[in-house]
Design a protein around this nucleic acid. Structure first.
Length: 597
RNA sequence: GGUUCCGUAGCUCAGUUGGAUAGAGCAACAGCCUUCUAAGCUGUGGGUCGCGCGUUCGAAUCGCGCCGGGAUCACCA
């Protein structure tokens, strides 16, 4: 929608240069942007690049072009030139038509057809040895939001999760549980399954450290002790047994994992995220192994004396990478090769996005290089690592050993609790039923958390300050939710039927109205931009701008008491579309919006 | 050390393919609730865009070199 008018003008400009100067100008070279609010006009054409063609000063070139546009395009009514910037003003009817045509469009800004091809996006990808923490929260929110944005931009999106249910880490938890667990279960302990297993992972680490200390005390070198501690060796043996399908090991593994899955499911549900398909590494790692063995036969990989298999990537500026251990068990890379292959077989997507933290940048460079260049799979060219920065705390980095990890479940509960306290203090829920009130606290608490995390550019490391995150004023979800609720209330009181209201006296549009209409007009292209950059932050920042603008507009004068009926209708119409844009934006961030608060 | 990402107000962050006088929120200060919901609005103060050089009509944005910080360079996942 917003591109329509600017594309139109770009064509006019192209025609102008062919007819007046017999010159061809590439459409990408023409820069049209929203006019800054300090200047008069709707769109600004930057005219400096035209001077080589016109052989005239930027100002004169701009004036001549302005003249032409006013004459040629009936939507352009006037122009002004400031230092080589050509500001054009569109006919008011353009803006009022825009309002009319979107008034009852609940999908405003969202593309409904899958016209851009298929994308598989993987996110969350937890290990089964411990509960989800703040880092996973960023991952989950980012993945879920990017998936929604891509879909809204017209892609056919498949959301997948890959659970790392096998490997040495889960063997460690299992071992600790077998040795010191006394058959403890989630029921007997009252702990959520993932938290229970996490507890044993910590116990393993403690006991392992003790053993190392003892060995060092007997005169062993630290590095050697770390490798020879009996507990670690036992865990390694267990992994081997697991890969050889030892019934007892498998039984315990399945039992403990099932507890963890129940725990994860609860967390995902609370967080409001979901998947189309869940992959388990235990099902895919053997495919990875066979890929590696094939590569070995073809001479793409090489084998060392201890039977371990390696890929030599030194010619591509990377190192040598282990693909299979000497004992034949697989490593992280092995299973990722397998899952990529499997995923391609399942969906044959144009793109595969992996939402994984930036500490794994190297891993994904290697993964793509091996699949695409070494093994020669064309489809692997579509692999994209959506890398995001670390979440830091004011106290420093999160370290599980030092107990500075922020647990996802606890965090969400704390946010909801804080939302409840502040809401009650303001008396917002006095008239609510208990169910409505509980639902509102949840929306506000989780909304604040999600927005706080998603408003930051994914690429950057971010600071998670617990106190700031529960702030409910300023650039926060509750502020946006609040505005949405107020508009709902306004519209309800107005009693206007938007299916009938479709025509306006465009001369009633004044600058306050125009400012916000221009912002709304941009919305569809904002979604495209967010999709191209895989960045929910683009949506969040847009929504905040829109809401701020609307609040000024709203405060300006009482809409319902507006005496001019035509003007009142136009302000109600703007409120309606703003409401839809807010709701849709928050939907793309996975944030619920209440209709009253 | 190699590779890579980041560096914008006291703090947390925006800043579109290079565009006009670099913007918000928080914090501070001053106003606005008999006026559709004050989780709001209006105003004030606050900047060597890490530093330097280059590219050009024009640089927070692009290039090169420094400085500072993170990540990674595992038979962990």
């Amino acid at each position: 929608m917003s591109t329509y008018i600017t594309e139109n003008i770009k064509q006019n400009i192209q025609e102008y240069f062919t007819s007046q100067y017999q010159a061809n100008i590439a459409i990408e070279k023409i820069v049209i942007q929203k006019t800054k609010s300090d200047f008069e006009g709707d769109f600004t054409i930057v005219c400096f690049s035209f001077t080589p063609i016109t052989k005239k000063s930027p100002d004169i070139s701009a004036n001549e072009l302005g003249e032409y546009l006013v004459e040629k395009n009936r939507l352009v009514v006037k122009y002004n030139v400031i230092k080589g910037f050509l500001n054009i003003t569109l006919s008011l009817s353009y803006w009022s038509d825009f309002i009319s045509s979107n008034l009852s469009n609940l999908k405003f800004g969202l593309k409904t057809e899958n016209s851009k091809g298929r994308i598989v996006i993987e996110y969350s990808s937890p290990n089964t040895n411990k509960p989800l923490h703040l880092g996973h929260v960023r991952n989950n929110l980012l993945g879920h939001s990017v998936a929604s944005i891509l879909k809204a931009d017209g892609f056919d999106v498949k959301k997948v999760n890959l659970i790392n249910d096998r490997g040495i880490h889960i063997c460690k938890s299992m071992l600790a549980w077998m040795k010191w667990g006394n058959q403890e279960t989630p029921e007997s302990s009252g702990l959520k399954g993932d938290h229970l297993i996490g507890k044993y992972y910590v116990i393993f680490d403690q006991k392992y450290k003790e053993q190392i200390k003892e060995l060092v005390a007997t005169g062993m070198v630290q590095e050697v002790a770390e490798k020879q501690a009996p507990l670690l060796i036992e865990a390694q043996e267990m992994l081997l047994k697991w890969e050889h399908n030892d019934p007892e090991v498998r039984r315990i593994w399945e039992l403990l994992n099932s507890w963890v899955y129940d725990g994860f499911e609860f967390t995902y549900k609370q967080m409001g995220i979901s998947f189309d398909k869940i992959y388990y590494e235990s099902n895919t790692y053997s495919l990875g192994k066979s890929l590696v063995e094939d590569g070995l036969k073809k001479g793409i990989f090489n084998q060392r004396e201890d039977h371990s298999v390696w890929a030599d990537l030194t010619n591509d500026g990377l190192d040598e990478k282990l693909l299979l251990r000497g004992d034949g068990t697989s490593v992280y890379m092995t299973q990722d090769l397998g899952t990529a292959q499997l995923r391609n077989d399942d969906y044959s997507p144009e793109k595969m996005i992996y939402v994984v933290g930036n500490e794994q940048n190297y891993h994904f460079d290697v993964l793509k290089l091996i699949l695409h260049k070494k093994l020669g799979y064309e489809w692997a060219g579509g692999i994209h690592h959506l890398s995001y920065g670390m979440v830091e705390l004011p106290s420093g980095k999160m370290k599980s050993r030092e107990g500075t990890v922020v647990d996802a479940d606890e965090l969400m509960l704390a946010m909801i609790e804080e939302a409840k306290l502040q809401t009650i203090e303001k008396g917002k829920t006095d008239q609510f039923s208990p169910q409505e009130a509980t639902e509102l606290y949840r929306m506000i608490g989780l909304g604040a958390l999600k927005y706080f995390i998603l408003k930051v550019d994914p690429m950057k490391n971010m600071m998670f300050n617990p106190e700031q995150s529960i702030e409910l004023t300023g650039n926060t979800a509750p502020f946006i939710q609040y505005t949405h609720a107020r508009i709902c209330s306004l519209l309800e009181k107005s009693g206007v039927d938007f299916t009938i209201l479709h025509h306006y006296e465009s001369s009633k549009l004044e600058s306050a109205e125009l400012a916000i209409i221009r912002q709304l007009h941009e919305y569809p292209s904002i979604i495209t931009e967010a999709s191209a950059n895989y960045s929910p932050a683009v949506i969040a920042n847009y929504a905040f701008e829109l809401v701020k603008m609307y609040n000024s507009f709203y405060q300006e004068k009482p809409i319902l008491k507006e005496e001019d009926q035509e003007k009142k209708n136009i302000r109600l119409a703007i409120s309606q579309i703003t409401r839809i844009a807010i709701r849709n934006s928050m939907f793309l961030l996975g944030i619920d919006v209440p209709s009253k608060m």
